[in-house]
Simulated assay, not measured.
Amino acid sequence: MDIEAKIKSDMKALGCKSDLKISLAYNLYIHLVDEKLMYDTEYCYNKDIDTLYIVARPNKNDKLNIYVPIPTYDLISVSFINQVQENLCTVETGPTVNLAFIEGDFTTVIYTFTKGLVNRPPPHRVSQQRAKEGRRTFIDNELRKSRNEILNDALNGGVVDDDDCEVLD
């Protein structure tokens, strides 16, 4: 039995019945092992969401990453990504899942999704934030322009006109 048949047989033995999912997972596995040179690469199956996936370490001392093969023609929703994260992410792997989109010629593009990122703020909030950043940038630029003058005044005690001073008894 050749290696491809053995690996696909092992994937089927994990519980996956879909030949398409097995083929995609096999090609992702080979991509991660041969092209990306990942460490501790293993294929796994989650029966709750009927998904074959790969876990691997990009470097020897890194944590395990999760890679889920997806055909490029599948429609992916945020709820699907949340479902994958809920079922596959562990304390050991962290809140990140990598979706590996695989084309018919087995070209693979990997996107990383991290659970718990902040939702995009509403448009009025974004414009307020931009205005605030604009004011900060203006003030910073003005301070930079006058930096030498401000430093000289601070070091020399500043220059005070006699007209501006009042002597108190």
Rank of each mutant, 00 (worst) to 15 (best):
Y39C: 02
Q129K: 09
N148C: 01
A56E: 04
F80V: 06
E133Y: 11
L75G: 07
L117E: 14
V159N: 12
L64I: 03
V84S: 03
R136I: 10
R57D: 02
D50Q: 14
F106I: 01
L24E: 00
N61T: 13
A13S: 13
E86I: 14
K8S: 03
L24Y: 09
S79H: 10
E35L: 07
E35Y: 00
Y26T: 00
K132A: 13
V55T: 15
Y111F: 10
L155Y: 08
L155N: 10
A13I: 07
L143M: 13
G94R: 03
C165G: 07
K36D: 02
F80K: 12
K63Q: 09
E92D: 11
I7Q: 01
V97F: 01
Y111Q: 11
T51H: 00
K17V: 12
L37G: 02
D162E: 13
N87A: 13
L143H: 05
D163M: 09
I76T: 11
P121I: 07
M1Q: 08
L117S: 05
I70K: 05
I49T: 01
L37D: 09
L28G: 00
I3Y: 13
A154E: 10
C89N: 05
G104D: 15
L14V: 07
G15W: 11
G15Q: 11
L24S: 00
F106G: 00
D162M: 12
T90E: 10
P121D: 02
P69I: 03
T108Q: 00
H124D: 14
S77G: 04
Q128E: 15
A13M: 13
R125C: 06
D62S: 15
C16I: 05
I139V: 15
A25D: 06
E133R: 12
N156L: 10
I110C: 01
E42V: 08
T107Q: 08
A5L: 09
D161K: 13
D62Y: 13
K115W: 03
E42I: 04
M11S: 00
D105M: 04
C89S: 06
M11N: 02
L24A: 00
Y39W: 14
R57N: 04
R147K: 13
K145Y: 11
V167C: 04
E103V: 00
E86K: 14
N61Q: 12
M38D: 06
L155T: 08
R147N: 09
L143I: 09
L20G: 01
I70W: 04
S127T: 14
D50G: 03
L155W: 08
C16A: 12
D162Y: 10
Y26L: 01
V55I: 15
D40R: 05
G104A: 12
G104N: 13
I76Y: 05
I76W: 06
I30E: 08
D169G: 06
V118E: 14
N119V: 09
I70R: 06
D161H: 10
T51A: 06
Y111M: 09
T93C: 04
N82I: 12
L151M: 08
E166D: 09
I110G: 01
Q129I: 14
Q83S: 15
